[in-house]
């Protein structure tokens, strides 16, 4: 753990997420430190993306508080919330690149709209970000002309262009082949290390979890909350909670669970978090 990692940049306190009258998650609490790669995982439909949308202010939480860099985004007025969230970048599962703009224009957009930089400086900065994600030479391509992995990297470049301290990534390796996925994982790892960016990644790709995560929380639909938290290697050996063990070991409900508890088991309940 890097020394700067002790400062929490995100603090989530007893948050309930979902839609009015239909809470998908209740009493969610966790913190994320600067430079940390934090992974939210769980099976499909457990509310991962809903939690992410709540964290980035697209969905209001049903209860609880969310602090970004010490500022509560729940009670903040819209303008204040915009300012608080400007220290965060987001990539979406389907990249959400603007189809009518080239990759360079996509990356330049936040700079042009939210800073006072002249156009040439915006162009330069955007080109540098694209180089950082390995997309030099593709600046004038439209998103539809790029492969899935390249689009993911372009979305990452756009999310990073305002030098955020936090990056939220929704399913960054979904739909990518193993090699491209591994390249993207490597890129995320290097960015977290060199730029001290806190990454909050929503995924259910186990390879990425093991490659990236310093800490994970696992959500469950039936429990409507966090059922486990810790390092992925610990949770993989956690036979005390069958749902967690099966998820990390890609087992079905009919597969037997080893009876000998692993010494590495690191399961924590919601109360212990």
């Amino acid at each position: 753990m890097r020394p700067e990692q002790n400062t929490p940049v995100i603090s989530v306190e007893n948050v309930s997420a979902g839609f009015p009258g239909q809470a998908l998650l209740e009493n969610i609490s966790f913190t994320v430190s600067a430079g940390e790669i934090f992974v939210i995982l769980g099976p499909s439909g457990c509310g991962k993306s809903t939690l992410l949308k709540t964290l980035i202010g697209l969905l209001p939480p049903l209860a609880g508080k969310i602090f970004i860099n010490g500022n509560d985004i729940v009670s903040a007025k819209p303008q204040q919330r915009e300012n608080i969230l400007s220290s965060a970048g987001v990539t979406f599962q389907n990249n959400a690149l603007f189809g009518s703009m080239t990759i360079l224009e996509n990356v330049m957009l936040p700079l042009e709209e939210l800073t006072e930089l002249p156009e040439s400086a915006c162009r330069q900065t955007a080109a540098m970000k694209l180089q950082l994600v390995g997309l030099t030479g593709f600046e004038h391509y439209l998103p539809a002309q790029l492969s899935g992995g390249m689009q993911k990297r372009a979305a990452l470049a756009r999310a990073m262009v305002l030098e955020p301290k936090i990056l939220f990534l929704d399913e960054p390796s979904a739909g990518l082949d193993p090699t491209t996925s591994a390249q993207l994982d490597k890129l995320i790892h290097s960015l977290a290390g060199s730029n001290n960016i806190a990454f909050v990644i929503v995924t259910h790709e186990l390879e990425s979890v093991f490659a990236l995560a310093e800490r994970v929380i696992m959500l469950d639909k039936n429990a409507r909350g966090i059922i486990a938290a810790g390092k992925p290697e610990q949770l993989q050996n956690d036979t005390a909670n069958p749902a967690v063990w099966r998820f990390f070991n890609r087992k079905t409900e009919t597969d037997p669970i080893p009876t000998t508890p692993s010494p590495a088991a690191g399961y924590k309940t919601q109360e212990q978090l």
Binding site: N83, L85, F92, A96, G99
Partner: peptide, 22 residues
């Protein structure tokens, strides 16, 4: 509508850009 389905409007919002103005 297509932009909304592709989360492009969400992307604008989280960038702090008002989709109505933009």
């Amino acid at each position: 509508g297509t932009m909304k389905i592709n989360n492009e409007l969400d992307a604008l919002e989280v960038m702090g850009l008002n989709p109505v103005r933009f």
